[in-house]
Every structure is written in C-alpha cells, then in structure tokens.
Design a protein around this nucleic acid. Sequence first.
DNA 1: ACATCCACCTGGGTC
DNA 2: CGACCCAGGTGGATG
Lengths: 212, 212
Amino acid sequence: MALTLALESSSSSRGEGGGDGHGSCRPRESMFEKVVTPSDVGKLNRLVVPKHLAEKHLPLPGAAARAGGTVLCFHDARGGEAAWRFRYSYWSSSQSYVMTKGWSRYVRDKRLAAGDTVSFYRDGARLFIDCRRIRRAGVVPAVPPRQPQQAFFFHNQQQAAVQPQQHLVVAPRVVVVDDEVEEARRRRCLRLFGVNLELELRAEPLLLDLQL
Amino acid sequence: MALTLALESSSSSRGEGGGDGHGSCRPRESMFEKVVTPSDVGKLNRLVVPKHLAEKHLPLPGAAARAGGTVLCFHDARGGEAAWRFRYSYWSSSQSYVMTKGWSRYVRDKRLAAGDTVSFYRDGARLFIDCRRIRRAGVVPAVPPRQPQQAFFFHNQQQAAVQPQQHLVVAPRVVVVDDEVEEARRRRCLRLFGVNLELELRAEPLLLDLQL
DNA sequence: ACATCCACCTGGGTC
DNA sequence: CGACCCAGGTGGATG
C-alpha cells in the first residue's frame, strides 16, 4: 500500500499531535515525541524512551523484555523506501526503555543533534519515525540535512577537525552555527554540507577564510 | 605420553618458530603469537585471536562455534603442572575468535601487560602457551613475574595511578622503566612488584622517593 | 558485593 | 570505497 504524500505546506498548530508541516504523511496518529539529549545522539548509541511514553505507546510484552527486547521497524515519515530498524529493549539495570541497535545510524543519517526532536507515529500496525531540527540561528544549510545522501563527507572526522588557528578554505556555501543545546560539552559547531564539525572552544575567536 | 624436555639453550633462529631461550620446551611447533592489546589484558576479560590465525591454527568446527565454543587446555610452556583452560569461541556479532573464560586468570598470574607477547604452540594434540614481556630498559624486577604467586596487588589500577607531582614512597625494590613499545600512547610505566602503573607523560621529570 | 563471563554492538582503520 | 577486522565497549546473568 503506497502512502499518499500530499504537500501540506505548514500546519499552523505545532502541538505534539499533528504533522509539523514538513510535507509528510497523513493517516498516522502521533505516539510521542522526544527532544533528544546529548546522550541520545552521542556515543552511547541508544535512545532512552521516557518510561511512561514507552509503556503507553510501545509496551514490551515482558516476555520480550526478558528475551532481550525486540526489533521495531519504523517507516520514514518523509517517505522513501527507508525503514529504520531499531532494537527496542528494557534495561532492568537502569529501569529504562531504550532503542539501541540501529539508532546510531539514524542519528548519523539524519544528522540528529542534541535538542532536535524525534517523533514517533503509528498507523495501525505500521510505525513511523520523523525528526526535526531545533530552531537555529543562521542560514538554512546549503544541503538539506536529510536522507542517506552521498554528498561530500569526511571519512575521518578526526582529520577533519579544524585547529583554531588554521584557515578553513571551502568551496560552496558554509554556515557557522551555534548549537543551542549540548552545553554539556561546550563546543563550537561548524556545519559543512550537513556534517557537524566540532571545534575545541578557545578564548580566541575562530578564524575562518570563507571563500564563497 | 610424557614430554621430554631437552634443554636446548637457545635456537639461533629467532623466527616465529623457535623457543626464545628461556629454558622451555622443545618438540613444539609455533602456531602463532600475539602482542596483546590493552583490551586483551584489561577488564574485558578476553583475548581476541586474529581471525586468520584462528582459522589457520585453532579452527572451531562450526558446530562447536554455534554451540558456544569449546574449552582449550594449554600446558604452560615453562613447564610445571599448570594447565590453562580457556573457553574459546566465535562471536558472530563481531566476527571474531576470542578466548574468554580463564583468560583473565592467566593475565593476572603472568602479570601480562599491554605490549607483551603471548605465544601458542602445538605438539601434536598437545597445546602450549607461553608469554614474554616486552623488552624493557632497566633492572630485572625484584619478583619474577611468574606463576600464581599471591603477592601484593592493587585491585584497582585506577586508584594506583600516580600523579607526576606526588612522591611515591615504597618499601622494597623498585624499578623505573621506560616502555619501548606502546609508543602509541606515550606513557611512563612504573613497574611495582610486577604490576605496571602507567603515568601520564609530562615534560617534568618524574619525582620519586625511593626508600630501599 | 563483586568479579567474571557471555552474547551482543560499533566506530575507526585498513585493505 | 565497500567490506571486513578488531579494539573497545555494553547490559545482564551468574556464582
């Protein structure tokens, strides 16, 4: 069954209920949203699902919980063939519900950052996931931060790290962005083709040569 | 069938074949060696056996792999009654061969540290294990780093870490050693009763009070 | 309680 | 550059 994607430009209501007007699908009912924490998008490779939301919308049969969880398949609310498979389980040690395996890929592909919002929808037995970025100062990124695009990409972010004193020379559009959240680690964030490059925060101002 | 241990003091060829002249046994053929990583001797309690070596010298029948591995019994190449039993299994998740149960005991008893070498030999169906420390400048340790001795031992190496500015006061023989290997992480290594304590490398010289 | 073991998982590196 | 290794992890079970 194909999903009809009528482009509704923007619904005025931004409540947790409806689609938020990014041109996505219809016959879903919202389950819940979460503003992701630094840990949710960091090296822990897991999303903590708030317990009350998990037990209300994504109950784990208990047998499944003891059996090491289950695998949930979420369709991408933006359409496309992409289906996101996450291991979903209960960690008795921390008494929390988590999505583990597969989650880090979603974070990477969607360029999720702390403060962004992930939304989970359901249409009958069909599950959907969507996300939206936080409101950011600065320009809209040159490349929309979506889909497993095969754009220019630093393979080794270590090598891509920019020393404060270096000049950064780039070709197309570049946007310097201040992350709103992620105050846990105070970092500067340079957004390049949808890739976040993290710079050590120094007293000195950042020196950049932007050749646009 | 007893194994005759003729003391050939040192085979001139140091190739991966022979004994290294520590007065150990003969009729073995070397299978492989590994320079152990920090993880191999750390809290993970497992030794990763490089895949190509594992499949060449210690194949797991596949049925055994699926059955959760097997137990291998290694005789101590230095002689003695000691036999080291390791669970040996294949982790399909990481596609790697590992020795798990029993390995941490070997690490402890032999005071194995990162950079040391473990060697596996075979004599027909009989398996042998040996290890040697990395070449170190400085004196031979006061206590030979052998056998299940129940000597003084820091349970938590974290706590045992020494800050460069501190004075270290110790009772018996102590040797300060510069690690030749492990240049990957440049660290000072202080050897104390066979335990390696790692110090952050600083410009300042190490300050020690040695009360012998 | 604590250490160990076990079955997973992942990113970086390498080929 | 995709595929694969493997070093470095995890939670949970066990004794």
